[in-house]
Design a protein around this nucleic acid. Sequence first.
DNA 1: CCGATAATTTCGTGCAGACGAAATTACTTC
DNA 2: GAAGTAATTTCGTCTGCACGAAATTATCGG
Lengths: 233, 233
Amino acid sequence: MAAAPRRSPAASDSAPLTAPVEDYLKAIYDIQQGGDAATTNVLAERLALAPASVSGMVRRLASQGLLDHEPYRGARLTATGRAAALRTLRRHRVLESYLATVLGVPWDDVHAEAEQLEHAASDTLIDRMAQALGDPLFDPHGAPIPTRDGVVDETRHSTLADWPVGTRGTVMSVSDKDAAMLRYLGELELRPGAMVQVHARAPYDGPIEVMVGTELRQIGPIAARAVRIAPTA
Amino acid sequence: MAAAPRRSPAASDSAPLTAPVEDYLKAIYDIQQGGDAATTNVLAERLALAPASVSGMVRRLASQGLLDHEPYRGARLTATGRAAALRTLRRHRVLESYLATVLGVPWDDVHAEAEQLEHAASDTLIDRMAQALGDPLFDPHGAPIPTRDGVVDETRHSTLADWPVGTRGTVMSVSDKDAAMLRYLGELELRPGAMVQVHARAPYDGPIEVMVGTELRQIGPIAARAVRIAPTA
DNA sequence: CCGATAATTTCGTGCAGACGAAATTACTTC
DNA sequence: GAAGTAATTTCGTCTGCACGAAATTATCGG
């Protein structure tokens, strides 16, 4: 018999998914959410793998019915694949919330830790953690937490880089991918809930002058794109 | 280049260990602690693997300096291997304690959950959990928790099966390996801290009549061997 | 000391998942 | 529409970890 691959205990139905598979699905979901096509190169970049590796895996996942893959065109999650991605996303975000809130893990460490634990924690443990937090709707970075049934708010907010000058807005979320970026944004008080108003934007993707709370800040376009804004209610 | 194996983030020094490797080391430590030689068959039984698989892995671990292996004789942990085993054991037991105490995971589920998480949690997260519990010395089953520096109480207590008739004793620990057994022992109030006194023991490995707290119980030798006793202080 | 039995190892194999190099396809630009 | 470039796939290969079957070694009873 073949080696039994180490599986995450998360899958609810017949075929439990391995940790790499969960990572692929999550990445594809994320890319699709950004509106882009989940092409091989983009995926390879996101997962820090060689394109050749991604190509092979995508074919395998498609044959398992988790993806639709049109060669040379990119991949799209099937309903099954989407459900699996959302299950992993829920685990990730519940873990982030729990670690930050209950165990005091720093804002910028939470993502990396959750990235590992999400493949190991059972669904009932995740539910216990969520319950201990009062079933929060958002994680510490403002990202929405899918329910057990895979329901999630997929509203796409503008980034601070695109926010019109003069309009007041509220920070909805910040990207959790880069710990250093997260520390920087934290120093600027650019956290979910913060009030912002863009005063000026330099041309050619230049720096942005923005009021954060009561402080006037200058921030670059890369950092600005990591911050999502919605009109203040 | 070869595939980068999914590694546990636990190892402090150069070579991070994979989850299977951590499992082997933990099992060998456990068998040695029981006084037995960690032979291929015993290890295979404990890990639910074929002897052929164990044979191969033991050779690899020996070549990595984690084990001393004399072919056809069995394996013994080196200092390095022992340190790695204790690191994993600490993670396992801290997790068990945390899950049971803080998240209310049932006594008999805690082991399986910790078994997965121990390979994924970072050392600093484990330390945070331990700290949140006040750095406990024992896990919910009474097993001693190694310190960060690998110090652990290795006292071997008698089992209830060997405890002399008439002598009063205190339950020090119960084996956490079998969830059903754990539930059974829980029903009998045979938990760490319980007072016991053997009234009679039937010959030929027969049932044992034992006072647990204020109740007189009859228990079989297999269950009795899962319970460790020390003289009541 | 010799054979029977049990434990252990070797050998060939398989799968998952990764890689680089080379081949292929798609896209863009004259 | 052809040519060049960029993206993608195929191909052969590697490591980790597992397996069964067969060969080997140890051990125990006579």
